[in-house]
Design a protein around this nucleic acid. Structure first.
Length: 1009
RNA sequence: GGGCGAUUAGCUCAGCGGUAGAGCACUUCGUUGACAUCGAAGGGGUCACAAGUUCGAACCUUGUAUCGCCCA
């Protein structure tokens, strides 16, 4: 039955996927024939995720490596799975609840809500798995893992065989806590007011946004004045002014309420007279205005704004550092939603307390935390509304810095106006990468990994070469980040995630934390800390615990107050678990060991860990890669992989980021529908130059879809001529064309392996493209036609065997990149022992090259091309068969011509070759070595065109010859260049000179016409 | 401001010491025994600029310009 004209991808892909799955083709260790393992951990996509072009690219590369190793007999595992994506999933489920008119998260309560999340995960969490399968990803899907597997309430749907990730995460937390690598503290963190949780600094996007810079006057205390002097670069005084204020610029006026100081640079002479004095925050009720000190710090930039900076330690990262250095109190102004605080005592009292701090009273973290410095009229307002009011209040009081502007009225009259000095300018504003709201630096209690303590082994792993990051620039970035690493905030105020395994008991003046893997263990520890006979009650939260404690105390009050602190009497001790969950990246950081069943000593751990290669986007080098290295080093003391391959973001054809708002998003599944998965995969491989920019266009994909059709049709040609059914053994060849293509196959196998070995996917893809299209289709298939149809039976049989073998090799070598069409052809073209995915990868190489056949065929190809070129340029009708004349034919040329006469004549459309002593008039010469060939075109030759053609060739030759002669004439070149380079140049020169003399002779003859 | 990178044919990019390459686009021709999702032929480049190292530089070094990305 004849094959269809094109490959029907949409029909074949699901069928082949099913076949592979039923055959268990991708199970760990499938097709293994050697001991070495090869393991790739998939970068776990979000469980909420849908396949985008980045996934498609990234997973194509992984699949290429995996399939290549599997065919080579490695014990291969491609471990799939998803992460639980704390914020994203919680957001997704909340949306779903709203859309289906179900109670809100807060109405449901934590436990009920988590049930809904698990339900949702069971229903939609598998989306991306199905999509990766459509791409042809050969993961061991039965092992699909999940970062929340084994957590409370896990029904195990979609990750039935996943290792218990939860236990691993908790164990690591407990161990790191015990080693002092994890601690809790009040620090300034990025706060997302929409999700009401801390987020990591990596989850913040700084985006340039139009903003305003306001300039305000902070009056000096008690009406003091000073002489403000400005000088230019040369020290000349440009401005002298008596001032009773210091000018401050800010983009966030609402934070003025929490100012603890004004800082100036120690070298700033303008403010030297007032350093150490107090100034007044120009906002809030007049009678309660706070005075804050003017301090010096290296941080203020003298050239920026007024050079003086207000210090709001609780709401700005730079200020936080200044405040820490200067012992300045940090007053929190906002609540978890980003609204101005409404708690605590009235403003008048709070302000007085803060004033006491400024005047030098002792303060503690806790006493500062309790002070709400938001004036009563601003309490509870959204931060942006509060900003407006603060600006209005200051301006109306006349404390805004003023400037003059000129405006033209309708009649063109210029009016000068004095207005508040507000600069409209772009400012870098932090946005939550999920919520898209403005992130607020906020002083809160959080859990941190003391990254500085675990960073050294991770740095050393890369420095020593134990881990190689590709491209190399990634290593520099890695060092730079790790050498300046900040504590990693790992707590999130969410419900969906691994809840922090810490329980709290009443302590001396705060809650006392107990870290343990389970509540039972925590209780045991708790009991050991108290005298016997105490009874413990697990309660929901701190508030409930406080109530229980209060009740206990009340009861004790009636008995004997003195026993409260010693707990001598039997009493109820409340205990509650930390409500926070761990950052998703904390669990993802354990992906390499967690998926393999650690901490159990599993067979998989032994076989597949450490893994081999990690392929991921360079945007998550810090998020994930560096943290994985740190954590694996900290936990199992081993590097999780030996190679990290980083790639860039996949962009559109113009290099723009794909985004819904720009409307330039390419959906990989639509591409698969339209062009087939193989075309997309080949495009991905082809553009995967190390460190390269990835620009995806439909045009490119179309091109590689055409390539699949090309391959299909070459196979179809073979099938039509019964040149199929190779058993894989190397056929014996006598015909030069057959010997030649076998050698070419050997060459390309080596190139492909070398390219894949070096992670140069583009080189592998390009080499195969050039081989299949440029060698097999353009030449070998054409050469084979006269051999298959007109030659003797022996040659026919030989050519059929070689053709069958060559097409099979194309299919085998292309399989890692284009699994579907190749598996399909494999099944179509013969009865096979094994499926293609399990077929042995060839090991032959350039040993298959027959040097004589190689040079002979290159000569033949050159001759054919030259005849075609001259024909085209002399406007010989394409269909016409021509006579070719030859003289002075050398032995090699004669042998080459005679040995391949049929195919030369056919491909160059030559009627007859005549040996002559002299070329007839009007013969166009061919630039071929070894013999003088010519096309007698007396009747139709265009003398001027031919002259132009020859002169052009001569020009090119002269340039080349000149260059080579110049080099060979330089004694230093001959002396210092490698011998083979010199030899090559000499040989090349000789050939070019031979061509040149032919062309010159032809030109002379032409002059005779 | 700091770090990392880029600049090669109209476009997208390989090449990173030894004769400037590919794909696409373009021009001309083609109903040739698999393929028009095709075939044949052709045009097109001071390899951003400047200085240096070298027998030899697109490639190494240093500077300049322009453009990206990441972090402040």
């Amino acid at each position: 039955m004849a094959m269809e004209k094109t490959f029907n991808a949409s029909e074949a892909e699901p069928r082949l996927t099913k076949m592979w799955e039923e055959a268990g083709a991708f199970r760990a260790g499938a097709n293994r024939s050697r001991d070495e393992s090869f393991t790739i951990m998939i970068p776990p996509p979000n469980v909420t995720g849908a396949l985008h072009v980045g996934h498609a690219f990234n997973n194509t590369l992984q699949d290429i490596l995996i399939r290549w190793h599997r065919m080579r007999g490695f014990d291969t595992l491609w471990q799939p799975g998803q992460d639980h994506a704390g914020i994203a999933t919680q957001m997704q489920v909340e949306k779903m609840l709203a859309a289906t008119q179900q109670p809100k998260r807060t109405e449901l309560g934590r436990q009920k809500f988590l049930e809904k999340v698990w339900e949702w995960k069971g229903e939609y969490g598998g989306t991306i798995v199905g999509q990766l399968k459509r791409l042809g990803c050969s993961c061991d899907w039965e092992r699909n893992a999940f970062t929340m597997a084994g957590a409370e309430g896990d029904p195990g749907i979609g990750h039935e065989n996943s290792a218990n990730f939860h236990d691993a995460v908790i164990k690591v937390f407990v161990e790191m806590y015990e080693q002092g690598l994890i601690y809790r503290g009040k620090r300034l963190v990025n706060w997302d007011p929409h999700f009401e949780t801390a987020i990591s600094d990596l989850e913040v996007e700084n985006i340039e946004t139009p903003g305003h810079m306001w300039h305000f006057k902070y009056p000096l205390a008690g009406g003091a004045t000073y002489t403000y002097v400005e000088k230019d670069e040369d020290g000349n005084v440009t401005l002298t002014e008596e001032r009773d204020y210091i000018s401050i610029a800010t983009t966030r006026p609402e934070t003025m309420l929490g100012d603890g100081a004004v800082a100036v640079h120690p070298d700033d002479t303008r403010y030297a007279p007032i350093v150490g004095k107090l100034c007044e925050i120009p906002v809030g009720p007049k009678e309660h205005r706070r005075l804050i000190p003017i301090i010096t710090d290296e941080y203020p930039d003298m050239a920026f704004g007024s050079g003086a900076v207000k210090i709001t330690g609780a709401h700005d990262f730079n200020d936080y550092e200044v405040a820490k250095r200067g012992g300045i109190p940090m007053y929190r102004l906002m609540d978890t939603k980003g609204a101005m605080r409404a708690d605590g005592v009235p403003y008048g009292e709070a302000s007085a307390l803060a004033q006491a701090h400024a005047n030098g009273a002792e303060f503690t973290e806790q006493s500062v935390e309790e002070i709400n410095l938001v004036p009563d009229d601003l309490r509870g307002l959204d931060r942006f509304e509060a900003r407006k009011r603060v600006v209005d209040q200051i301006t109306s009081e006349g404390l805004a810095v003023m400037t003059t502007v000129e405006t033209k009225d309708d009649e063109g009259e210029v009016n000068t106006q004095i207005v508040p000095y507000v600069e409209n300018k772009p400012i870098m504003q932090p946005f939550g990468d999920r919520s898209k709201v403005v992130i607020e630096p906020m002083l809160t209690d959080q859990w941190f990994v003391d990254a500085a303590k675990v960073v050294d082994p991770a740095l050393e792993a890369v420095r020593s070469g134990e881990i190689k990051i590709m491209p190399e620039s990634g290593e520099k970035t890695y060092y730079h980040w790790l050498e300046n690493i900040e504590p990693w905030c790992i707590s999130r105020q969410l419900w969906w995630g691994h809840q922090i395994p810490v329980w709290y008991l009443p302590g001396e003046d705060d809650w006392l934390p107990i870290c343990a893997a389970t509540e039972a263990e925590a209780l045991e520890i708790a009991k050991s800390r108290f005298v016997d006979g105490m009874s413990f009650r697990i309660v929901e939260n701190a508030q409930e615990a406080a109530e229980v404690l209060q009740a206990t105390i009340n009861e004790m009050d009636t008995q004997d107050e003195g026993t409260i602190r010693t707990f001598e009497a039997p009493q109820v001790i409340p205990m509650f678990r930390d409500p926070d969950v761990l950052d998703t990246w904390f669990s993802s950081g354990l992906w390499p060991i967690g998926t393999l069943g650690w901490p159990e000593d599993t067979d998989e751990m032994k076989r597949y860990f450490p893994t081999d290669v990690l392929i991921t986007g360079q945007d998550i080098l810090f998020f994930w890669v560096a943290r994985m290295i740190m954590m694996q080093k900290a936990v199992v003391k081993q590097a999780p992989f030996h190679t990290v391959y980083l790639h860039q973001l996949v962009r559109d054809e113009k290099g723009k980021k794909m985004s819904k708002t720009t409307g330039n998003v390419i959906d990989p599944l639509e591409i698969v529908d339209e062009f087939g998965a193989d075309a997309l995969r080949f495009t991905n491989a082809q553009m995967a130059a190390l460190g390269g920019v990835l620009k995806l266009s439909k045009q490119k994909i179309t091109g590689y879809r055409n390539f699949t059709t090309k391959l299909w049709n070459a196979a179809r040609f073979a099938e039509m001529h019964e040149a199929i059914g190779s058993d894989g053994s190397l056929p014996t060849a006598t015909a030069t064309a057959n010997k030649w293509i076998i050698g070419e196959t050997g060459k390309v196998r080596e190139v492909v392996d070398a390219a894949l070995e070096a992670y140069r996917f583009n080189d592998a893809a390009n080499a195969l493209y050039a081989f299949v299209w440029g060698k097999v289709c353009d030449w070998y298939v054409e050469f084979s036609k006269p051999l298959l149809m007109d030659a003797d039976e022996a040659t026919k049989a030989e050519t059929r065997a070689v053709m069958a073998w060559v097409i099979d090799q194309c299919v085998v070598l292309l399989h890692p990149i284009m699994p579907f069409i190749t598996e399909e052809l494999w099944g179509t073209l013969g009865e096979r022992q094994k499926i293609l995915a399990h077929t042995d990868w060839p090991t032959y190489g350039t040993d298959l090259v027959d040097e004589n056949a190689d040079s002979e065929m290159n000569w033949v190809i050159g001759l054919i091309e030259e005849v075609r070129s001259v024909r085209a340029q002399m406007h010989v009708p394409a269909g016409a068969k021509v006579e070719v004349v030859v003289r002075n034919m050398g032995d090699a040329a004669r042998a080459a011509f005679e040995g391949n006469e049929a195919l030369i004549k056919k491909l160059a459309r030559i009627e007859v070759l005549t040996e002559v002593d002299d070329f007839p008039k009007g013969t166009a010469a061919l630039g071929i070595t070894g013999a003088e060939f010519g096309l007698p075109l007396a009747d139709i030759i265009d003398v001027d065109a031919e002259k132009a053609r020859l002169e052009k060739s001569l020009g090119k030759l002269a340039k080349e010859i000149g260059g080579m002669k110049g080099r060979l004439g330089n004694p230093k070149f001959v002396a210092s260049a490698p011998d083979e380079v010199v030899e090559e140049t000499r040989a090349n020169l000789a050939e070019r000179e031979e061509e040149e003399s032919l062309m010159k002779a032809a030109l002379t003859r032409l002059a005779e016409i």
